[in-house]
Write a protein that binds this DNA or RNA. Sequence first.
DNA 1: AGCTAAGTGAGAAAAGTTATCCTTAAAAAC
DNA 2: GTTTTTAAGGATAACTTTTCTCACTTAGCT
Lengths: 141, 141
Amino acid sequence: MSAIIRFMNYEQLLRERDLKVTPQRLGILTLMHQSGHISIEDLYEKISRQFSSISLATLYKNVHAMIETALVKEVKIPSMKSKYELIKAPHAHLLCTQCGSFEDVSVPMEQIEAMLPHGVHFKTTESSLVFSGICETCQKG
Amino acid sequence: MSAIIRFMNYEQLLRERDLKVTPQRLGILTLMHQSGHISIEDLYEKISRQFSSISLATLYKNVHAMIETALVKEVKIPSMKSKYELIKAPHAHLLCTQCGSFEDVSVPMEQIEAMLPHGVHFKTTESSLVFSGICETCQKG
DNA sequence: AGCTAAGTGAGAAAAGTTATCCTTAAAAAC
DNA sequence: GTTTTTAAGGATAACTTTTCTCACTTAGCT
Ligand SMILES: [Mn+2]
Ligand SMILES: [Mn+2]
Ligand SMILES: [Zn+2]
Ligand SMILES: [Zn+2]
């Protein structure tokens, strides 16, 4: 039910971008939503369970099409492979260097963009911020 | 002359890390310093002029050794290949999406690290911040 | 100068990504 | 609803990037 609603949203998001709605694409979007952030490798492993014959080429082609149409974003992470996420409101990320957890964190990006030194005339359109360190769980453990 | 002084510094930096001082390594460090930020590809192209027989394997091995010993840092950049730089004081980066220029910018990283929401107990050890947008030159042109 | 561990270079191998080509299926037209 | 059109999927080859292996050389030490 909520799955149906979600699928319909994905269908709409794809149609708005002139991308055909295919089961593979719905699967990719669903997995990205569920995982929050997912690497190509993990995405392939998971989607292969649903579509045992899906080709890696299909996966790459789709992820790129979705990036080009601003549906998905690549997140580059220090010392690990990129992960992909559905585009949403600007936010930063927390990477735990101990357990590898990778999470969203709400940070006022506009405020950060306002912190460029006076005299630097750069028109920022987007910014990428990743904090690396130790997560709460690892601090306790 | 200033080249000699620089080389001596690099020698010391290598020795402190128990890395043998080789002409290839001095060349790599010199190029990184000159370029500020350089991709593996460009580094290989440039260093090949000095050491026509240098192997890509040597380049990769050295860059990794220097990363592991905290002499060099990989900078991941949205929608382009990573660049490498000599480690220095924490700073952020400006990427011009029009001309591709990539530069350091001085930003108080500790202050930014203090902007995590209250209730988020993450112990940040390092953070990576890249502003994407239009540089001053491109704004004028 | 001689010894030893580390580094270099060449090429093979592996990993990651993209291109090609034919088949299949979604969307549009009828 | 059926036909037509076009985009997408799948298999595989090709290409790019990175790592590995191994024989040889060199730096650092005595
Ligand atoms: Mn995120
Ligand atoms: Mn820098
Ligand atoms: Zn952790
Ligand atoms: Zn520019």
